[in-house]
Design a protein around this nucleic acid. Structure first.
Length: 298
DNA sequence: CTCCAGGTTGCGT
DNA sequence: ACGCAACATGGA
């Protein structure tokens, strides 16, 4: 069973693979021989997908691994949606490319990473959790926390002699107490945040669809920021990585500040007002601009 | 030892 | 509205 998903212009599978391979600490997917593997949840069915590139570079080829029966139409459709969001296949990047070539800060990364897509985190709970875990600590430690959370509370899926990790479901985390998460070395606060978000999602009070129904970015951000543990940074991070909002802009992000400092050759990080000024031309593409700037560092 | 990491909260002016 | 300590841990 193999699906073929045609890719848009300005899509580079090599660039996306290179991004996915950048951290050896990541355990939710693996890259081998030019293909990506991960377990996903498709309409309640867990399955492992293998994603590669067609020989003529025209389409992503998605295969379902495992010993079970071939997935039905609904599951295939859900898996397709997942892959489309993961690789952001539905964005026309040409306007960004045009803008970036004329932008002092972006022209270098736009050339280096041409065809790179914002790596989506299609699952809302995973996206918010990753945002919360990453708050205020260095990235390697954030990965350590994520790994512990996954090993302790996520399920594993076997396929083709391999074992694939899955991020814990909100239902699993919703029933935990702070005392159970603390030993993973999460702060009490972060433990509370995760459990609360898990409960909201588990009860259906928070969902990707519900957020999208808010209409515009400002309202989606408001809805997210009302949740304890989600501030402007996390809200915009989630809007960018999970909801594919091109104008999401985590402007207070330290990584962005460091990337700008480096690109500008300054001996200090730019201030927020300075960043607003520098990002004046990014209008409509703040998320992609941020992602490309990050790529300079990570 | 101090400062900073993909921040946010809650309390104090 | 704005400032600031606290939060947990690791690395420079």
């Amino acid at each position: 069973m193999q699906l073929s998903l045609p890719v848009p212009e300005l899509f580079s599978f090599a660039q996306n693979l290179s991004y996915l391979e950048r951290s050896p600490l990541e355990i939710l997917y693996t890259v081998q021989n030019g293909k990506v593997y991960r377990a996903i949840d498709a309409e309640g069915t867990a399955l492992v997908v293998e994603i590669g590139m067609a020989a003529d570079d025209s389409a992503l080829l998605v295969r379902f691994l495992g010993d079970g029966p071939p997935p039905g139409a609904a599951v295939r459709a859900a898996a397709t949606r997942y892959v489309r969001r993961w690789f952001d296949l539905d964005t026309d990047l040409r306007p960004f490319d045009e803008m970036a070539q004329k932008d002092t800060l972006l022209q270098e990364p736009a050339r280096l990473y041409r065809g790179l897509r914002i790596a989506g985190i299609p699952d809302l709970f995973e996206a918010i959790s990753w945002g919360i875990l990453g708050q205020q600590i260095n990235l390697p430690f954030a990965y350590t926390l994520k790994r512990r959370l996954i090993e302790q509370y996520g399920r594993r899926l076997e396929a083709g002699n391999q074992s694939y990790a899955m991020f814990p479901t909100p239902e699993r985390i919703a029933g935990l107490s702070v005392e159970e998460l603390r030993p993973l070395q999460l702060s009490s606060r972060k433990s509370e945040y995760l459990i609360h978000v898990a409960q909201l999602i588990g009860r259906g009070e928070l969902s990707r669809e519900g957020l999208l129904a808010e209409g515009d970015l400002a309202r989606m951000e408001q809805a997210l920021v009302r949740i304890r543990g989600i501030g402007p940074w996390t809200a915009n991070y989630v809007l960018m990585r999970c909801l594919q909002m091109p104008t999401a802009f985590p402007i207070a992000d330290v990584g962005l500040h460091l990337a700008l400092k480096q690109a500008l050759g300054w001996d200090r990080k730019p201030t927020i007002p300075e960043i607003r000024e520098l990002a004046g031309g990014w209008s409509g593409w703040e998320a992609y601009a941020t992602f490309y700037m990050w790529r300079l560092l990570y």
